[in-house]
Structure formats: structure tokens, C-alpha cells
Design a protein around this nucleic acid. Structure first.
Length: 113
DNA sequence: CCGGTGACTTGTA
DNA sequence: GTACAAGCCACCG
């Protein structure tokens, strides 16, 4: 059985869905949780297919807390608006107090804890 | 089939 | 502290 790639994408969607309200995470954190820290790019690419799903891609940003993926959203400030709607302060595509809103699946979920 | 690209991260200088 | 390079793997033409 191949379909490992679909599994990877599916995993990314599941973790993204597990992100609590008012929290954000990074691609690397998800990748690490999946055991593919080197494939953080694929996580972002997976988000590309998150369209039409219940995956809050706006809660996923890069390690700098920068909304690198906002360009892939329909609007120009849609991603920022969504984050601000959750109580997250965003200025110039940069999440403020990023450490406070950061959510690490490998730590919070503690899959291998 | 092959080359280029990309919503990233880490390490070295 | 910033800047550049390498690694990763799926999708597109």
C-alpha cells in the first residue's frame, strides 16, 4: 500500500484541525510531529490542498510567526483578519506575542510524551 | 520521464 | 544580529 503521501497530507490536516482557538503553530512543528522535520515545505504544500476543508490554514505560520501563506488566501488581509478575530494580534503580517499564542502539537498532544 | 518550483527549517559564516 | 546554502518531497508543465 503506497498512498503515504496522502497520509502525510491527511496528517497535516488533522493536526491543523487540532489547533485550538486563539492559537497558532508553525509548519516545522507540524512536520516534527509527523516525524518529517526536514519536510516542513510539504506541510505548507499540504495546506495548499486544505482549500474546501475545515483546516484552519490561517493558524499555521512559519517559525517567525510571519503570515507567509497569506498570499495563497483569496483576500489580501483575510488571513490576518481571521487571526485577529481569534484575539491574535497581527501587524504587518507578523504575529505579535507569537510565543504566547504558539501551539506545539508534539508538546501539547504529547504523542510520544 | 525530467526539471523547476515552493505556505519551510536548520546550520554555517 | 543578518545572509547564504543545503535538504526535503510532492505537484506542474
Amino acid at each position: 500500500m503506497k498512498q503515504e503521501t496522502l497520509n502525510f497530507f491527511d496528517k497535516v490536516y488533522e493536526v491543523a484541525r487540532l489547533i485550538p482557538f486563539g492559537r497558532v503553530t508553525s509548519y516545522g512543528a507540524i512536520a516534527k510531529y509527523l516525524g518529517a522535520v526536514r519536510s516542513a515545505r510539504m506541510v505548507g504544500y499540504a495546506m495548499n490542498g486544505s482549500g474546501g476543508k475545515d483546516v484552519p490554514a490561517h493558524r499555521v505560520v512559519n517559525r517567525k510567526g510571519l503570515l507567509t501563506g497569506k498570499h495563497h488566501f483569496d483576500g489580501t488581509n483575510l488571513m490576518q483578519q481571521l487571526l485577529e478575530s481569534e484575539g491574535i494580534q497581527v501587524v504587518d503580517n507578523q504575529i505579535q506575542n507569537f510565543e504566547a499564542v504558539f501551539w506545539d502539537p508534539g508538546k501539547e498532544l504529547g504523542n510520544d510524551f
